[in-house]
């Protein structure tokens, strides 16, 4: 049964609880239906969608590292038209907050995808991915420069009329500066962090472990970095922040909310335990009991 104490908001978005699932770790949601009720989540964010079909990077795309993993999938997807025609009809209605992660290599591509998703009735928000480290052109290129970040957000804002989340990369000198530029350009909320640029090497074979040499590190290894970024950003912008980075359990969710997150995204943990979100939701209720909270949102920004 729904625990009203977990009800949360991200600006105009109303969530049953502060849990979203991170893009790229949750497929299109249906992959997880055998393991949890999609409608029990605050929302879910589907795999990054681009203007045209992308094959992604060559295998191997994955390396395990201490308390984490490095991936270099490279936005493999069938393109926005395929999504609208074939995926959307299958998933619509499975949760009130199905969010599409929008990616691209050019401002035109971001705008094309955003405007097509804008027409999908039951998608209340997009997450603009200006922070993917695994594509050669675009992606993180936009997210590491405040002027380019502001420009892509400004243009997408013109064609996208619903809730616009912008996903930030930690691979920058000053994340506050980027966050403020994106806020000014019209973002409704921010999600952070995307993966940390990293690499792994096989000492025996004397070769990199993934085909692209570098990739994006996720998992508990990046949680301290993510907490720092969320704390810095949430205290320097006036829009909601969604915390992402190595969340494995309810305690981690609480930590992110304490440093200023209004909601969180669970990513790598879905791979380790496909029903992890159910566990986290239950444990958040226990936390509310133990700390006598009327609402989980009381935690936001206490630190």
């Amino acid at each position: 049964m729904e625990d009203k104490r977990l009800n949360s908001t991200i600006g105009t978005l109303k969530l049953k609880n502060p849990l979203l699932t991170a893009s790229g770790t949750f497929g299109f949601g249906t992959e997880y239906e055998d393991f949890l009720d999609l409608n029990s989540l605050g929302g879910f964010i589907v795999k990054g969608t681009t203007g045209e079909k992308r094959e992604g990077n060559p295998y191997p795309r994955l390396a395990e590292t201490p308390s984490g993993m490095i991936n270099a999938v490279g936005l493999q997807n069938k393109g926005v038209e395929y999504f609208c025609k074939n995926i959307y009809p299958q998933i619509k209605g499975k949760n009130p907050n199905i969010i599409v992660n929008v990616s691209g290599s050019s401002i035109e591509e971001y705008c094309k995808v955003a405007s097509m998703i804008n027409d999908l009735e039951t998608i209340p928000a997009i997450e603009l991915n200006i922070s993917c480290p695994n594509v050669k052109k675009g992606g993180m290129g936009f997210g590491v420069n405040k002027d380019m970040a502001a420009e892509v957000v400004t243009e997408v804002r013109k064609v996208y009329k619903k809730h616009l989340i912008v996903k930030l990369t930690p691979n920058v000198t000053n994340i506050i500066e980027i966050a403020q530029a994106v806020e000014k350009a019209g973002a409704d909320s921010l999600s952070l962090i995307n993966t940390v640029l990293a690499m792994a090497v096989d000492a025996e074979k004397q070769k990199p472990l993934i085909s692209t040499i570098t990739g994006g590190l996720s998992g508990p290894a990046i949680k301290p970095i993510a907490l720092r970024c969320v704390w810095q950003v949430s205290h320097n912008v006036n829009i909601p922040v969604i915390g992402i980075g190595g969340i494995m359990n309810a305690r981690d969710v609480v930590e992110f909310m304490l440093v200023g997150a209004s909601a969180v995204e669970i990513g790598t943990a879905n791979f380790v335990n496909p029903s992890v979100c159910t566990q986290v939701i239950n444990d958040l209720s226990d936390y509310c009991d133990r700390h006598k909270l009327n609402n989980i949102t009381e935690l936001i920004g206490k630190i």
């Binding site: 790229g24 770790t25 949750f26 497929g27 992959e31 997880y32 795999k47 094959e55 992604g56 060559p58 295998y59 191997p60 795309r61 994955l62 390396a63 993993m69 991936n71 999938v73 493999q76 790598t268 879905n270 791979f271 496909p274």
Partner: peptide, 21 residues
């Protein structure tokens, strides 16, 4: 090598002749 085993992570791909990765 795979992360999820259920078709979500897209890490374990092999290149096929008819369907790509």
């Amino acid at each position: 090598r795979m992360a999820c085993g259920i078709g979500a992570c897209l890490c374990c791909v092999t290149e096929t002749k008819s369907e790509g990765n």
